[in-house]
Design a protein around this nucleic acid. Structure first.
Lengths: 151, 151
DNA sequence: TCTTGATCTCAAGTTAGGTTGAGATTGCAT
DNA sequence: ATGCAATCTCAACCTAACTTGAGATCAAGA
């Protein structure tokens, strides 16, 4: 028995917007960026697959997590080629994003600790300041351990 | 005995750039935004006060901490009017920024926890997803808990 | 069939934080 | 006094992530 395509299997952009909470223009923008690839109707209107709802929703979520569209693109590259992604596929991505979050948190904590050092030492005294000296400039200026801030 | 202004007390923009590690154009941009207000030489060239070095350096640091120029301006508003800021003045600001960092870290941790929930629940199942539903939209659609995994 | 709402494309505008370049002056050391 | 580096202003350009608007076309119910 052949698989029947119900019309509800192909979603127009307006419904996509409703279902994902994104604007129509944003979705078109994502298509431009290659994040989603709807097919076209006879009259050249976009028609999305049901699985695209999840895909597009994921863009929204990942952005809330602080990923750029480029980074999201990179995550999408991990999705299976030629078949609709499963829960397991998405889980792999979620886990990878968790690592990004962990890194981001750790980074912020390191920064905060450095700032604490600065406050404690009556700092922002530039010459000694770990934050100020985070970057290159001020090359070899005085002795002692120099802490560097990851960019 | 009158205070003598040595020429070294008024710094041209090039030296400012060298001392802060910023580009000349960036410093001019900050002036545009009202973050620093150099005086002008007879020939209309910018002349910065020594204390501006710290001020401008602070912009750089605060940006690395993730503050926008607008937020930095808000912090600067706390500096004393009409006198060169002391170490104590800067400390007040640093402390305030510490609070911003704390908030940011807490927020990220909450997000990570939500993501963990999602991963745990085989999530990104949209309807139930804490991340997905973090925002408003959520148009009641059809009956029963639909799991979009089925697609 | 008519009419209305949904879509289409393409161009331009928006905010943040700058950079780049042109063409004109300034400032300082010989 | 002159020569050259530093500076000046102003306008245009850049990335990211979209939005807005104009003018044209599509889809579907009465």
């Amino acid at each position: 028995m052949a698989v029947r395509l119900r019309k509800s299997d192909l979603i127009p952009i307006g419904e996509m917007a409703r279902r994902t909470g994104l604007s129509v223009s944003a979705i078109r923008f994502y298509e431009d960026k290659g994040l989603v690839e709807p097919v076209r109707s006879a009259g050249n209107q976009r028609r999305f697959l049901r699985s695209d709802i999840r895909r597009v929703s994921f863009i929204r979520i990942a952005q809330q997590l602080g990923l750029t569209l480029g980074e999201i693109q990179a995550e999408f590259a991990k999705l299976p080629y030629g078949r609709t992604p499963t829960a397991r596929d998405w889980k792999v991505i979620s886990t990878s994003i968790r690592r990004v979050l962990d890194e981001r948190i750790a980074e912020l904590q390191r920064t905060r600790d450095r700032l604490d050092g600065c406050i404690g030492c009556g700092c922002l005294s530039l010459k000694k300041c770990a934050l100020y000296n985070a970057d290159d400039h001020l090359a070899a200026k005085g002795p002692g351990p120099r802490q560097l801030l990851a960019d």
